[in-house]
């Protein structure tokens, strides 16, 4: 069992969870993820590592509460335990001295890009962080990112902070920079990553994304996480999760992510009380 050290809603619907997982904390590298289960009957869900501390043996994930598992994770209080935390999975993000790197992030990606940006900074890169959200009150970890960024730019749908709009404004923001950009890294929801990719392809700037297809085992055993990159099938959990954005078949990824849409709403509609009833009838299994 893995103990919850801290649990907090940091902005509406966005949660931070710190867990005791010393073996994972010891090996974690920027860009890797864990798979966890919220309870014995639970699903296995992948979440990126946003922070870790090898000394205290803890890891931190940031997630949006959208479905049954993230919903349950959001309700955990410090002292509670969950049955599975396995990792660190996937390959670490490539960290080199590229020159100037733009880190585009939104949603949970604001958390997961932090360790990547930090490592890139330490490697001597100039870091320009572009944060996107619906509204200014949905930004978090701003001080953390400010501390390691040479420049920080905000985009909000409602214009309450920085540029108004969404990541589609990327080209003009990049044009406005006084320096050439050597690499772009995008973390967050599929929409944000795809749009970033669409916008940077014509500019010819190498863009890396951290893909988030459906996963089960995270070790290359089930193949559900397959994505097409440069017309070859790759398993995101073992060959990724980072891929060259301009090579990704985004339509396929978006379509594959929808596979269980109709089913995922069932547990949300099933109240816990009904479930308990179900369980007592099923005593045998």
């Amino acid at each position: 069992m893995f103990r919850v050290i801290a649990s907090k809603m940091i902005v509406p619907n966005m949660h931070l969870l710190t867990l005791a997982a010393p073996a994972v904390a010891r090996e974690a590298k920027p860009g890797q993820f864990v798979i966890l289960r919220a309870e014995e009957e639970g699903e296995r869900v992948p979440l990126s590592l946003s922070d870790w501390d090898a000394q205290s043996g803890t890891i931190t994930v940031v997630f949006m509460s959208i479905g049954s598992t993230t919903g349950r994770l959001a309700l955990l209080a410090p002292g509670a335990s969950i049955p599975t935390v396995v990792g660190p999975l996937g390959n670490a993000t490539e960290i080199e001295n590229y020159g100037t790197v733009v880190c585009v992030c939104g949603c949970y990606g604001i958390g997961s890009i932090f360790p990547i940006a930090l490592a890139l900074k330490r490697k001597g890169n100039r870091i320009i962080t572009i944060m996107e959200a619906r509204s200014s009150y949905l930004f978090y970890w701003e001080e953390r990112l400010e501390a390691i960024s040479d420049k920080i730019i905000h985009i909000t749908r409602d214009g309450t902070k920085g540029h108004r709009g969404h990541v589609g404004r990327l080209p003009e923001i990049l044009r406005g920079l006084e320096e050439p950009v050597d690499r772009i890294i995008a973390n967050g929801c599929t929409f944000l990553m795809k749009r970033t990719s669409d916008e940077t392809r014509p500019l010819g700037i190498k863009t890396m994304v951290s893909l988030n297809p459906i996963m089960i085992d995270g070790t290359g055993m089930c193949g559900v996480c397959r994505v097409t990159v440069g017309s070859v099938t790759r398993f995101a959990c073992v060959h990724g999760p980072d891929f060259d954005a301009h090579q990704v078949d985004w339509e396929e990824l978006l379509q594959r992510r929808k596979t269980y849409m109709p089913e995922e709403v069932v547990p949300l509609r099933t109240s816990r009380c009904e479930e308990r009833h179900f369980r007592s009838q099923e005593g045998k299994s």
Partner: peptide
Amino acid sequence: MKGFLFPKYHTPV
């Protein structure tokens, strides 16, 4: 994942 017991077990089939 005991998907045949969905939704008691949460992994959908």
